[in-house]
Amino acid sequence: MDLRIAHLYPDLMSIYGDRGNVIALEQRARWRGIAVETRAYTAGDAFDADWPDLWFFGGGQDQGQDVVGADLQGPNGGAVRRSIAGGAAALTICGGYQLFGHEYVPESAPAIPGLGVIDVTTRAGKTRFVGNLVADAEGGTLVGFENHSGYTYLGAKAKPLARVRIGHGNNGEDGTEGAIQGHLIGCYVHGSLLPKNSWLADLLTTWALERRHGHLALTPLDDAVETRARDAAIEVAKARP
């Protein structure tokens, strides 16, 4: 069995530890005896829509996001849409999450269109949300660090990924964090999201394998180190939000 991960724009959209999510998916697959390959898909490449089981799309700086936004308006955006319609899963963080939504509306510039595969819209906010975040999701507790000034609002087709307990989440107003729509996830927790939230890593892996291998129950792993890191991070978030 094998798992194929496409890392979208790793040269432009991999800010502050987003690579940790790919490391977590790769290692957990290897520990289960699943072969894994990660390929970089970046601006100027011709995307192969049939290859990926899972797309990973991290956060970027504003300037990188311009290049990426333009690339996704061309044939590469069509390839990602086709791949998702064909059953590929995706994890998108921060800027990647915004570009999977309908559009990003800056304060005083024309809206930047996104792929529109997750039913969310983002506008520039006045206050930047920076700090530890804890939220309750159906599959478990989410813990990590958020750092964004985009405020994201969910449409009818997207469900909130989690409810914020500590921190700000999507927009600081409605208590939601992230979005889940089919096999796509958007989220504002960057960096070490999947290593500490290993239940989410396994959910994405299950979805990704489903495309070519059908639904499978994953072999359980010893997650003692992961659980202790998550519990300790929750305590830190309580003490230093």
Partner: peptide, 9 residues
């Protein structure tokens, strides 16, 4: 630095 995510890079 309050965000320890950098260790993953």
């Amino acid at each position: 630095g309050r965000d320890v995510s950098w260790i993953w890079d």
